[in-house]
């Protein structure tokens, strides 16, 4: 742990806020506020991603996760309803399932390399070759871009195919044949992503 104390304090603050936001969302009945808090959760996550040396992911999360996803959910609330029904009774089964899964996952982390460990397998293979060779092979300063667009170019192509499929699906689901259009709201507005 060679991080400065200030960075560590910021991380602890971010993690506390993440947990607090999420528990608040879980307890909330007003969907409008829950959606806005989801956007805040995304932003806090993006903040931590920046500290974890992943600025590309932080930008994408802030723009796509906090921006577009929040917009889509608000549009859905505009077309449906703004308030969730109050729960009839507390059901213990979901809580038991969640706690059991959590315990199994925590047990799984006991074998994992510690945070920032330089000797972890992930940092010994195949990563050094990306860092030492990508500058000569791809000629891009940003290694993440080099991998995304070149080494894993087919992966990115598949990703765009997924987006196309989802967009076609949204258009097919929301096209307003056989239905009268709602006043002032274009049902296909969500397909623009």
């Amino acid at each position: 742990m060679t991080e400065p104390i200030a960075t560590r304090l910021i991380v602890i603050l971010l993690l506390a806020l993440l947990g607090w936001t999420e528990v608040t969302i879980a307890r909330m009945r007003q969907l409008w506020a829950a959606v806005m808090l989801t956007g805040i959760f995304s932003f806090l996550g993006a903040g931590w991603m920046l500290i974890l040396d992943a600025p590309d992911v932080a930008f994408t999360e802030a723009a796509v996760g906090a921006g577009i996803a929040t917009f889509l959910m608000l549009a859905t609330l505009g077309l449906t309803t703004r308030e969730a029904k109050s729960p009839t009774a507390f059901k213990p089964l979901p809580l038991v399932v969640v706690i059991a899964t959590g315990i199994v996952l925590v047990y799984g982390t006991l074998d994992m390399p510690h945070y920032g460990d330089r000797q972890a397998h992930i940092h010994t293979y195949p990563e050094p070759s990306y860092i030492t060779k990508s500058n000569a092979e791809i000629q891009l300063p940003n290694i993440v871009t080099a991998i995304l667009a070149s080494y894993r170019g087919y992966d990115t192509l598949g990703e765009t195919t997924v987006i196309l499929t989802a967009g076609v699906g949204v258009i097919l689901l929301l096209r307003n044949e056989r239905r009268k259009p709602r006043d002032g709201v274009d049902p296909t507005a969500e397909s623009t992503t």
């Binding site: 590309d56 996760g65 959910m73 993440v144 995304l148 989802a166 699906g169 992503t193």
Partner: peptide, 27 residues
């Protein structure tokens, strides 16, 4: 490590695509 960043960049965009589809189903 640059590789987790690459994988997660793909996952974020795919995640928004599936969210859009789920929300369209809800509508």
């Amino acid at each position: 490590h640059p590789l987790p960043s690459v994988l997660i960049l793909t996952a974020i965009v795919v995640g928004v695509a599936t969210t859009a589809l789920a929300l369209a189903l809800i509508v």
